[in-house]
Design a protein around this nucleic acid. Structure first.
Length: 654
DNA sequence: CAGTGAGCGAGCTTCCGCTTGACTT
């Protein structure tokens, strides 16, 4: 055997083997082959952060097999992914397998003095096609040590953060907990959203909708409009009284069309899938968890049905685009084919783009045809259909809509007040890609879906100056709504925006914070637990810069001293000032004279109520499980406690 | 429904990102 080629995955190795033929032996490394030890930190901080690498137990067998194969190879081709991690894997392989021949200047196996020579080449390609591979093998290069160093820095930094902070949590909060650059930011996002929701005070507002019809009767002459302005100024209706007042005035008003604006709008298709958008869309449209989506995608990939499922790239091979265009032309219609192919560019600065976007391997294989394949479940087919449609849609013509806005003036009987009401509507003139990839599924308020499809009314033809008759007046009460809790889709989206996590880890990040009981999933939404709140507060209080969303390497210097906050309160036992400390149940007040003085108090919120038993102040506290309750400030002398706020105003008011 | 903080010690937990099969139910 002359040539040994190593890639990461067995699927990739099989494909490559087919293209390279029998002069090459293609093998898979199964991901990383060396790593820091699990049992100890493995970084020598004194020796310029030197890492200690070991071969993990589950990789030992594979490495031995690769070493054995290398004995008879003349040339070693390192064909791992063209990104930071891929370059590092190549380097580790070179260190492990290349060094075999250098031990004591002798071949370790034969112990002969003749030093065996082996060429070691690094080859990269962005798609597995015969041409790309041929090109790559014609033009091999050396390992890029800058990329390798970037990976090592990333690995070392993550190790230091994770293995330094986690033990602090074991000591301060609970054994077995964890913290890390990625999981702790995910947790923080959920905890902060929870706090936002708690603090949110819904505000009342009203809308007034009118149903109108043209005075000259035609068919389809009715439409509805919403009150927007009063005497040319934007109108906000705060309560029922105000709404009723406007309704009364509008009942006796004269209505006429003031202005008609028409605009043509174009809607462009969404780009093809990356791991993150696939997970988001599968969650929103098919109700699949990120974990499930990845499992299904892996099966589809292994069956050769879709391209690689762990990617952050929007690139499409020229072949795939050509195939999609010809499919569109022949099966959907010439009108649906744009004159030039659409190209998509990745916006993310942290993207590594080692692979293509996620798309069907064979464009002409529709989901309908896939159903007949054995071993595939309904969910496999549904996910494939989503990938297929997204790919086709991204190469189709844009949709064209006619958007109309009608301003109606309502002049009150006295002619003193002029209201403006507005009706909007849009009509699809040409559906384009919408023909294939319509939006369905649940959309939550405050979360954008990839295309925002509002069910808008079709407006009748109206022209300026036309008179209208009032049919109905509908005042309606509303309340402002805060941001919703994250679900899998919105959290993954947020993490990706922040450049946190990678395609191979989005699904596992969610599992980690769930496994640690930092968060709970209820009806597909993430709720923080008291434990999660305690951990997030501890981390943010002590390492604010570390879990800043803008975290960068320069800011890494961590203070390991546990922070305390000073207060102007005085200890009732010894007169020393009280400080805010952090404990298993979150923040609390403690005497600064500890350990001499052991006085503690709960850190509570004063409430406008008095204790019905002893007349003391009522404070809001939290149970061990985190549920808030109202208790007497004089506890433990007074035992009063209640889930609801006790009635009875403060002394002196009654 | 109402805890907590320091240090000592014997040995366990822990990170992120790359990739599958080898375990058991």
């Amino acid at each position: 055997m002359q040539n040994l080629v190593i890639v990461e995955s067995p699927t990739k190795s099989k494909t490559l083997q087919k293209f390279l033929g029998s002069n090459y032996r293609v093998e898979a490394s199964m991901g990383h082959v060396r790593d820091l030890p699990k049992s100890d930190i493995g970084v020598d901080v004194e020796k310029s952060f030197e890492p200690k690498y070991i071969i993990p137990k589950d990789k030992q067998k594979r490495v031995n097999e690769l070493k054995k194969l290398a004995v008879s190879a003349k040339t070693l081709w390192l064909a791992t992914d063209p990104d930071r991690e891929g370059e590092a894997i190549a380097w580790h392989l070179k260190e492990l397998i290349g060094s075999r021949f250098m031990v004591h200047g002798k071949d370790k196996k034969t112990m002969s003095n003749e030093l065996r020579t082996m060429n070691i080449h690094r080859v990269i390609f962005h798609e597995i096609t015969p041409e790309a591979i041929k090109e790559a093998f014609k033009d091999p290069r050396d390992i890029d040590l800058r990329l390798v160093d970037a990976q090592q820095a990333r690995r070392i930094l993550d190790r230091l953060v994770g293995y330094k902070l986690s033990p602090l949590l074991w000591k301060k909060v609970k054994s077995g907990l964890s913290a890390g650059r990625v999981q702790s930011v995910a947790l923080r996002l959920i905890v902060e959203r929870e706090k936002e929701i708690t603090a949110f005070k819904p505000e009342e507002y009203w809308s007034v909708t009118v149903e109108l019809e043209l005075r000259i009767k035609n068919e389809n002459e009715k439409f509805s409009a919403t009150l927007v302005e009063l005497n040319g100024k934007k109108l906000a209706i705060k309560n029922k009284e105000e709404a009723d007042g406007h309704v009364k005035a509008l009942e006796k008003a004269d209505y006429r069309v003031e202005k008609v604006t028409q605009k043509e709008m174009r809607k462009y298709p969404a780009p093809p899938f990356t791991t993150s958008t696939l997970q988001q869309t599968a969650a929103n449209r098919l109700g699949l968890s990120a974990k499930k989506t990845m499992m299904l995608a892996q099966h589809l990939y292994e069956h050769g049905l879709i391209t690689y499922m762990r990617t952050d790239s929007l690139n499409l091979s020229a072949q795939a685009i050509t195939a999609a265009r010809s499919y569109i032309e022949q099966n959907i219609g010439k009108a649906y084919l744009p004159t030039t192919a659409r190209a998509y560019k990745t916006k993310s600065k942290v993207a590594q783009e080692a692979h293509e976007a996620i798309r069907p391997s064979n464009i002409s294989l529709t989901a309908e045809k896939l159903k007949t394949l054995e071993g595939l479940s309904r969910d496999h087919v549904r996910l494939y259909e989503l990938v297929w449609k997204r790919m086709m849609a991204c190469q189709m013509s844009e949709a064209v809509l006619d958007h109309t806005s009608v301003d109606v003036e309502a002049l009150t009987a006295s002619k003193a007040v002029s209201y403006t009401l507005r009706a909007t509507g849009s009509v699809i003139k040409f559906e384009g890609w919408l023909k294939l990839y319509k939006v369905s599924g649940i959309k939550y308020k405050g979360e954008e879906s990839e295309e925002d499809e509002k069910g808008e009314q079709a407006l009748p033809k109206v022209s300026e100056g036309q008179l209208l008759d009032l049919l109905k007046l509908l005042p309606e009460q509303h309340f402002t709504e805060g941001s919703p809790r994250y679900n899998e889709a919105s959290l993954i989206k947020k993490l990706e925006e922040l450049g946190i996590g990678r395609p191979s880890t989005y699904a596992t990040i969610l599992s980690t914070i769930l496994d640690r009981f930092y968060v709970e999933k209820k009806e597909k939404r993430f709720f923080s637990t008291p434990l999660g709140v305690a951990v997030a507060e501890f981390l943010v209080a002590n390492f604010p810069d570390l879990f800043d969303y803008e975290f960068t390497v320069e800011k890494k210097a961590a203070r390991v001293k546990i922070a305390t906050e000073e207060t102007d309160k005085i200890c009732p036992d010894c007169g020393k000032p009280l400080i805010i400390r952090f404990g298993k149940f979150g923040k609390f007040l403690a005497c600064s004279g500890f350990p001499d003085c052991k006085h503690t108090e709960g850190l509570e919120e004063k409430v406008d109520a008095i204790c019905p038993d002893c007349g003391g102040d009522i404070v809001m506290r939290k149970t061990r499980k985190g549920r808030p309750f109202y208790g007497c400030k004089n506890w433990p002398t007074c035992k009063f406690a209640s889930w609801t706020k006790p009635k009875g105003a403060k002394a002196g008011v009654s």
